[in-house]
Nucleic acid binder design. Sequence first.
DNA 1: AAACTTAAAGTGGTCAGACCACTTTTTAAG
DNA 2: CTTAAAAAGTGGTCTGACCACTTTAAGTTT
Lengths: 234, 234
Amino acid sequence: MQAELHNLDGQRLHESIVLRFHALIQQGILKHGAKLPAERVLAEQLKVGRGSVREAIRTLELQGLVVSKHGSGTFINTQSLDAMTTLMTSALGPGGSETQLRDIFEVRHLLEPQLAALAAQRATPADVERLSSILVEQRRQIMEGETGVDADTKFHYALATATHNAALIKVVSAVEDVLRQSRDQSLQQPGRAERSLASHRQILEMVSNRDHHGAREAMEHHLTAVEPSSVFVE
Amino acid sequence: MQAELHNLDGQRLHESIVLRFHALIQQGILKHGAKLPAERVLAEQLKVGRGSVREAIRTLELQGLVVSKHGSGTFINTQSLDAMTTLMTSALGPGGSETQLRDIFEVRHLLEPQLAALAAQRATPADVERLSSILVEQRRQIMEGETGVDADTKFHYALATATHNAALIKVVSAVEDVLRQSRDQSLQQPGRAERSLASHRQILEMVSNRDHHGAREAMEHHLTAVEPSSVFVE
DNA sequence: AAACTTAAAGTGGTCAGACCACTTTTTAAG
DNA sequence: CTTAAAAAGTGGTCTGACCACTTTAAGTTT
């Protein structure tokens, strides 16, 4: 609701230094391999403290645009992948990297149906048991008037666990984490919580039946049912 | 209570501070919204200078893990997408075993074909142009005897960019980053680099033709051709 | 008692100078 | 010329101070 990172006037000093270097690099004035002036010299030239110069260099280094070598100097490095992406996004606009909610939902649409299919192929009886008990909890929460958002999140996490793929589990849990608040809001709409529970049951049934095709479709249906529909149509 | 800030080979002080906070956040000791001690206090607790603390905080802020507010304090912020990707790569990086590599390839199989389809639907002429120039670079690298791993990584990243989905871009870049070394090893096998270039061209053709179905299949084929398990297939 | 105003404390942002650790260059010795 | 030692250059860190902004507490007014 509230804008966060549009602090035009409240710009920190080292940040403006970073932007200055971005410009110098994009204009080709600083080329790959070029050596930057020493921090002390840079500080004097820019008329700032050395600490600010260092914090700016730290930022540039994290962006992959520069490499500092103890004892020898700091060098431009525009051939790294990080450097490429940084310059691209820097040229694209001043706005920070805030991600839209529908972008995340799109990732879920790409990921979770496939994930459900994988889970259907690999879920152990213990996994099915865990998923089942989570649905019991979700049912209880809903009957007590809650949204069941905790159980909802747990279900998706448990489903990821059922794939027995560590990388997948981490990706999904991270994505789910970001979604938690907005999900709670979504589930407060009348009938939404019950519908979520119903489609969860459908997914679980497919998984326990080892029907990976059905699980994929059930998850796709679930996401469509839960996502903040009719918000913005592009 | 007072653990040692062990200084490994060539590790800068502020970097070890960053790693320390990564651990604290991943262990759940520092939760979203928590307020960090003041920089002066932190410096005294860690027995380092305030400048080092500030450079560490600058890094954490760039990684999206904390937010500093002038006059009020510095706060943990793990609900941003940046935070999620950095924690992901931080967890995936050091403990990298072979098992995790296979898991990551599986994630790519789930993600990238869909991603290619999306890119085919949304790629702008500028995106196509960028992809094309990357392939030129890859061809040049291969002809010079290199593996072309840089161009290879750039291609997948640029493809993610063509979806114009910030969340997707970040997830993919996190996954690709981990894959880089193993990819280089994979591409050193005879004929593998050329085949990678060929399938990249096929993907680009599908994308430029807006053929999302073809792009999906081409990417699936590409991944199967490049992934380590296919060593025995040829 | 409540609302407003003002002063103080807390905290991030910046600056200055100093010293250390490492690297490169210069100088001196063989 | 080769080699070793000294010097210079540079990033890394520490200390202490002051500024700018925010929050809190104290004091005043209503």
